[in-house]
Design a protein around this nucleic acid. Structure first.
Lengths: 343, 343
DNA sequence: ACAGAGACATCAGTACAAATGATTTTGATA
DNA sequence: TATCAAAATCATTTGTACTGATGTCTCTGT
């Protein structure tokens, strides 16, 4: 294939009119130019330059080749331009996905700030459960994903036993602030995972429920209650079941809905009680009471995941890094109307 | 600047889906591919491929770079394509110029054959005197030029003295047939010059002229005649004057015209006699008689000139080579109605 | 004419980039 | 756990491209 570096030399020679001038312009020696052109002429099998006493002159073939080269070099420059735009957050795309409640709370804040700073980066956001999102991240369809996970069942048990979970401070800032960048082996070893915050679980009761006025509520107190929760197959629902079992009972599920507004509505209507993560409680119905449990059940851990190859030198997409910082910020400074919820 | 060879590697990796497959496709080792991609990522400062267990996957940045690369490689291929078309005489351009009488005789024959064989090559032909054409050839504006020249004045004298010039056989093939490729130093060392033919000079007389019936005519016999010739500054006119002087007299120029048809008309009208080269006598008026002189005055030497750098490895434009062959052919096999002109 | 300047060509030597081959690391799979 | 496939890494070799010195032209000014 034609050597593009040589074509560039040819172009410069054509522009300057002599080997010597082109050498000067390219910071080469005249010898190098001469050899490059000679090689190019050998490759093409044709004379590209006519050697005159005072320099050189393009032949017809040389001219057509230079014209092609202009186009080639223009495209190369365009590619460099776009790379630099991506690097400088003046272009490119950031494809994101998050689970629904974060998509409605953390993401909008971060996205608004991102767009204000980098209006030229195209942003896309899909919603989905972690099980749907994680594979897409691995498949390279996403640049940043907001997932959640619950501590393993042992942790859940331990948390219940100790009366104070590993992240059992719903009024504090949890594990947020982004300093927790421990990468976990196993499922997520193709990702870089950053803990954003711990999303504590609160109990939602109808305002008139008899337990709504109890000073301190324990999970065990809800043994006889009917439960409203998300789909049985969802991680949240499984988590609720695990917590209840750890508290010594099997929850009686009266209804399932994956929309936490609907869940609140069902609770308000007296269908049952529910464990709802804080992020899903940015709006609390008038006829629903939210109470903290004691001890706190293990919180939902919200995690930002980014694609990251195995190699230690993997670089993040600049836009993803910027968005990650904004998300950490949003997580750290989010509004927490429930911070002093009665417990 | 982005290294296009590396971009090509990236493209192939993207196409194949893995380093190993791309290595196979490009006949490299997997190691080479890995290093090239690593270098490309270092250059751009961004991750271009996501390493998956079963191969690799483009990142967003990688995809945009691949898209640019497609365009770049397409243009490179187009350039190669056109070069090969030029080399294969399936395209390109051949810019020619010739002096008028050759433009009306040799060129049409060669051009017709050329166009039949290589219809896709664009041909252009300009007319002009050697003094106009030669600089344009040197300036690279022409790919092939038909010039003429006369042997130097010494030769002219010697030819007249010896009674038989160095090319004094108007019935033979002269120096044609292209074997005479001696390059002359001085003015023409930037050109490759190929002698096509010797164009002998004939005397044109009015049919009723008293000398028209003489068995043998010598130049000296025309001492008292009035002469018609081309512009005083033209090489042909100067040649005529030189010949006459060598024969011992100064021609009396009655009229000048650069069009040999006009010259014939003037001769027919009795304005004077003229020395006219054979190529300009493809059509002879009824009322004009053409006679060979004895000894023959030095012939006009018709030369094809092509641009050729100093270097010995200079390659000709393929179209120019082909045209040169056709011109040599046309020169060797041209019709010579005057071959047995009375002398 | 002749010497000098300017320009490209050539050549030997060197420096750097790229390819190889062998080996290690990593994530997935049985 | 052992194994497999694929990429990363490393030392080594290969090859290309650059440099610096020199040669060869041609034109120019004296």
């Amino acid at each position: 294939m034609l050597n593009v570096a040589r074509l560039r030399v040819l172009n410069e020679v054509a522009r300057c009119g002599s080997f010597s001038a082109a050498a000067e312009a390219l910071s080469y020696t005249q010898s190098a130019i001469s050899q490059q052109i000679a090689a190019l002429e050998a490759e093409t099998g044709m004379t590209l330059l006519q050697r005159l006493p005072r320099g050189v002159q393009l032949t017809g073939t040389g001219r057509t080749l230079v014209e092609h080269t202009e186009g080639i070099l223009a495209r190369v420059r365009a590619a460099e331009e776009e790379l630099s735009a991506i690097a400088g957050l003046r272009g490119g795309e950031l494809r994101m996905a998050s689970f629904p409640t974060a998509g409605a709370t953390l993401m909008p804040v971060a996205i608004a700030r991102f767009r204000a700073s980098y209006p030229e980066v195209r942003l896309t956001l899909a919603e989905g459960e972690p099980e749907q999102i994680a594979p897409r991240l691995h498949a390279g369809e996403l640049d940043l994903a907001l997932l959640f996970e619950f501590s393993g069942p042992q942790d859940a048990l331990r948390a219940a036993d100790e009366g104070q979970g590993p992240s059992g401070d719903p009024g504090g800032s949890g594990i947020a602030s982004g300093s927790t960048e421990d990468r976990e082996p196993g499922l997520g070893s193709l990702e870089k995972r950053v803990g954003l915050l711990d999303d504590p679980m609160y109990l939602a009761l109808p305002r008139e429920h008899r337990l709504a006025r109890r000073r301190a509520l324990r999970l065990e107190d809800l043994r006889e209650q009917a439960w409203v929760q998300t789909s049985a197959s969802s991680p949240c629902a499984r988590h609720v079941v695990r917590c209840c079992r750890a508290a010594g009972f099997e929850p009686q599920v009266a209804f399932e809905s994956d929309d936490y507004q609907t869940v609140q509505g069902l609770v308000a209507a007296g269908v049952g009680v529910a464990l709802i993560p804080e992020l899903a409680l940015s709006v609390v119905r008038e006829d629903v009471v939210v109470r903290a449990l004691s001890p706190h059940p293990p919180a939902r851990r919200v995690i930002a995941a980014l694609p990251a190859g195995a190699g230690p030198r993997t670089r993040l997409i600049p836009a993803a890094s910027a968005m990650l910082r904004l998300l950490e910020d949003a997580a750290a400074h989010r509004e927490r109307p429930l911070a002093q919820v009665s417990r």
